[in-house]
């Protein structure tokens, strides 16, 4: 009886060493893709960043174009109008604010032209 018990114990112990941890069901549970876990705006932001857009909400300062009537600085917006803050010159101590409407390019008092362009919401 004792030897039978020993056999059973030894056999099972040996088996558990032989089997991989995965087959014994002790493998670590991994989350395959954390992006699939995200939802809502958080997910849209992550997707935009994955697509190479590091400013999906257009929060950063725009780089100015030449600013002539034919080559205005393009301001993206998903609405009919957007407020633009023009830094008229490099050392300006105040920002000049102006409303920019769809289909109506507008000229700041410093002479710089802006134009609203359509953009899809995030």
């Amino acid at each position: 009886m004792a030897s039978l018990c020993r056999q059973i114990v030894r056999g099972n112990a040996f088996k558990s060493v032989l089997l991989s941890t995965a087959r014994r069901g002790y493998a670590d549970k991994m989350m395959p893709d954390p992006l699939e876990h995200a939802t809502g705006m958080e997910r849209k932001e992550l997707l935009a960043m994955q697509a190479g857009n590091d400013d999906p909400f257009n929060m950063k300062v725009l780089k100015k174009a030449a600013g002539t009537r034919d080559n205005p600085t393009l301001v993206p917006s998903c609405f009919d109008a957007r407020i633009v803050g023009c830094i008229c010159e490099e050392h300006a101590t105040a920002v000049t604010w102006l409303w920019l409407h769809k289909d109506h390019p507008r000229r700041c008092e410093c002479g710089h032209w802006y134009k609203l362009i359509e953009k899809q919401p995030v």
Partner: peptide, 10 residues
Amino acid sequence: GTYQGKHTIL
């Protein structure tokens, strides 16, 4: 945060 995804990076 978790179910509505309101917690963006900002």
